[in-house]
């Protein structure tokens, strides 16, 4: 990440620099010609160094070589034309291909910087007798090279962020079903990690559902929750209290042994909360509560029913 930032600041400076003079444009042409001439050799050197540095381990050597060729050609083209759109599009496509295979950001930044090193080394070799010219060549090469590295790295990170956003959205959509089991009884099964944002969303949905379904009892099942910290636990307590304000009793079920131990150890006060071991027990308890509440006001037929069953 530090590499990306550094090259970003360099590239900003480069773009602010005055337009290339005639002679430096000539130097760039010479540079591009040199890179074209030694394409095979430099490309192989690059691929070798990628393998040696143990980057892109998720890919085979042939794949690395194929991608290296494509990156190299795009690289030279970007140097020649000074436009980065093609490279940008290519790096986005490349990221789409390699992200699912587990390629990390540092690997992508690493290979681009390696290419920069390989090319710079070859320039040193070519112009080592003419230090003054070498300096001028490097002056025109370095800003462009940095900007290329920057473009590829940013393209990769943006693609990653896009995928993460997409996944977050997908998770959010499927995360919070509030189900009505029977009249006045709701179930809220929670699965996965609860972050503050999701906890808030869960509560809002639950409260709205309580009102819409005129629920009297809610069973919140946390069997699918692997871990719970004090923040989430306190939020759960708040949800229970808010539900009570709407006239609904909340029963929490499926607290795992780990969570039970954590909560007691960190000292979250759950004494106000009704808890039952598993979802089945929770629903049975809920039915009992509903029968109790219905009995005094219900019609005689319904009032007698639970009695005759006992």
């Amino acid at each position: 990440m530090a590499d990306t930032k550094r090259s970003m600041s360099v590239s900003t400076r480069a773009s602010e620099a005055p337009a290339l003079t005639e002679s430096s444009a000539g130097l760039l042409r010479e540079l591009v010609a040199h890179l074209r001439q030694n394409r095979t050799q430099l490309r192989e050197e690059w691929a070798r160094r990628i393998t040696r540095a143990e980057l892109l381990t998720a890919m085979t050597e042939e794949e690395i070589f194929a991608e290296a060729t494509a990156v190299y050609d795009n690289y030279v083209e970007a140097l020649e034309t000074g436009t980065f759109e093609a490279l940008q599009a290519y790096s986005r496509r490349l990221s789409e291909r390699i992200i699912p295979r587990g390629v990390e950001t540092d690997e992508v930044v690493g290979i681009v910087l390696l290419l920069r090193d390989v090319l710079a080394r070859s320039l040193f070799n070519k112009y080592q007798d003419n230090v003054e010219k070498l300096n001028r060549i490097l002056d025109s090469y370095e800003p462009a090279a940095n900007r290329i590295a920057n473009t590829v790295a940013v393209g990769f990170v943006e693609e990653r962020e896009r995928i993460i956003r997409q996944q977050q959205e997908a998770i959010r959509e499927l995360s919070t079903p509030v189900l009505q089991v029977r009249e006045r009884l709701l179930i809220l099964p929670i699965i996965g990690v609860i972050d503050p944002q999701r906890a808030r969303q869960l509560t809002e949905q639950l409260l709205r559902a309580i009102r819409a379904n005129r629920a009297k009892v809610v069973v919140i099942d946390v069997t699918g929750v692997a871990a719970m910290d004090s923040g989430v636990a306190n939020h759960l307590v708040q949800t229970v209290e808010a539900s009570r304000l709407l006239g609904a009793t909340v029963i929490v079920t499926g607290l795992s042994p780990e969570i039970a131990q954590t909560l007691v150890t960190i000292g979250v006060d759950l004494s106000e909360m009704a808890t039952v071991g598993d979802l089945q027990g929770g629903i049975e308890e809920a039915e009992r509560l509903l029968a109790d509440r219905a009995a005094p006001t219900a019609t005689p037929v319904r009032e007698i029913a639970p009695e005759s069953q006992r």
């Binding site: 509560t203 809002e204 409260l207 709205r208 309580i210 009102r211 005129r214 708040q238 949800t239 209290e241 808010a242 539900s243 009570r244 304000l245 709407l246 006239g247 609904a248």
Partner: peptide
């Protein structure tokens, strides 16, 4: 018994720690 607390109001209340402990509340 207090009736008709809105969902948003209920959530805001518990966040402020105003939980009406010991007072019966129902939907409507």
């Amino acid at each position: 018994v207090i009736v008709g607390i809105q969902p948003d109001v209920a959530f805001a209340m518990v966040q402020l720690g105003l939980t009406l402990k010991g007072v019966a509340t129902v939907l409507d």
